[in-house]
Design a protein around this nucleic acid. Structure first.
Lengths: 236, 236
DNA sequence: GCTAATATGCGTATACCGCACGCAATAGGG
DNA sequence: CCCTATTGCGTGCGGTATACGCATATTAGC
């Protein structure tokens, strides 16, 4: 159980300064190097392959040396998440809120494409890191000229954000995963087509035609979500 | 690493029959009892409190006895997820697709209210269980009279589903967790208000007024999403 | 009813994991 | 120059999932 108090050392590490005292031997490692290596390891082999021993050996250091830089593995993971999220995209003011929100949503989902393990982390309650708050800032800023009230601005950002997170597993690059989750073969294998007639019919119909990129669930949903926001803004 | 082949024993357990051979001593436990107890334990103490030893002692059995019923902990968790999801709600045909989809979405999110640990599980790639496919069936069936094409029906269900999953952390019952994720105190503590002016302004503005239930992020987003689906259907 | 075949419950053992603690080596401040 | 803070890291502890094997219970076939 991670301590979620603002004053815990983990949150300090996320938000506070990371300067080190001037006395003693020169550190061989740095927090940045550890976190970067951990992100790389999680990217290539998955979060469950990340152990402190494995990470240390990857860095050519003793396991316990890592604890000179990070108070616990949970705190390391918090730092990994904010590093993986990275800085939000620069959004030009002139092109209007819709293209800004679209850019924002695509940058957001690309985080989870590059770092699939980050998706399961953001669905847990936790303290947000600086980069995550920067994303929130960018999203709210994109809507600040629309005339929406503060509460509705926030709800709108949460709507787009919620949709992105919920549909990230279905962006094209992960579609292989999706099709393994539910397939005609699965239903056929256990003779369940009659139990789920609409599912079977839809899958059969879709197997007929070649998929277009604009038919991808994420593309479709993003258009619908932004359309509904547009309708709200125009009704003001 | 869970085997995601349709023929793995875990998938067999999810979809296949669970009958036991007639020879040998009577089993003291049953798969159902093990899974139910595991769900209860995860509900009350969280998924990370669930260990095979703890579960066994809860059931008054030896740790290794559980492996007579379940091939691995990962497979147990797959079974727990489908049990937690449960059967989708019965949806009356007569009241129209919108109220059907709303009922569907609310039932969906209530799964994650009752079993918060299920949310992190559904965001991982995996083989869907029978109850999850039944949800998909119910969602597609609700849209089958609307005139949408099969691919668009699926995309619509995925849109609502994606939104539900992405915004589940922000339903009112979890709002305490949300407000801990980002708070005025957090920004103030580290003197970052100038770095995130829009965030600070929005939070300040919202602190002024008392929250209405219809202003909750989930309620707001659900209306927007269903509005956009309605617009699509009416344009046919 | 006896025996052989087949399950069962589960104790033991292995290979990991995060991390508390302590100690020798290092390097800047007085 | 020495003192003291800080380093890297070896050792050890209590936890984890689970492979293996054995004694025991049950039933099918004779």
């Amino acid at each position: 159980m991670t301590d979620r108090d603002v004053h815990s050392s983990g949150v300090q590490l996320l938000w506070g300064d990371t300067s080190r005292p001037p006395r003693g031997p020169k550190p061989t490692l740095s927090l940045q190097r550890i976190v970067d290596e951990a992100v790389e390891l999680a990217d290539s082999e998955g979060l469950e392959a990340l152990s402190m021993q494995r990470l240390a050996s990857e860095l050519g250091a003793g396991t316990m040396s890592l604890y000179r830089y990070v108070p616990s593995k949970d705190d390391l993971i918090s730092l990994m998440l904010d590093t993986a999220i990275g800085e939000p995209p620069e959004i030009g003011e002139r092109s209007g809120w819709r293209s800004a929100m679209e850019t924002w949503a695509r940058a957001n989902v690309s985080v989870f494409e590059r770092h699939p393990w980050a998706l399961t982390l953001v669905t847990k309650p936790r303290v947000m890191g600086p980069n995550e708050v920067a994303y929130l800032e960018a999203g709210l800023a994109a809507l600040s000229g629309t005339g929406l009230e503060p509460a509705e601005m926030l709800n709108t950002v949460l709507l787009v954000n919620g949709f992105v997170r919920g549909s990230a597993p279905f962006v094209p690059e992960r579609a292989a995963g999706e099709s393994k989750m539910i397939s005609p073969e699965l239903l056929a294998e256990f003779g369940q087509q009659e139990r789920f007639p609409t599912v079977a019919a839809v899958m059969a119909a879709m197997a007929q035609r070649r998929p277009r990129k604009s038919d991808a669930p994420f593309e479709y949903g993003l258009r619908r979500v932004l359309d509904s926001v547009a309708a709200r803004i125009e009704s003001l």
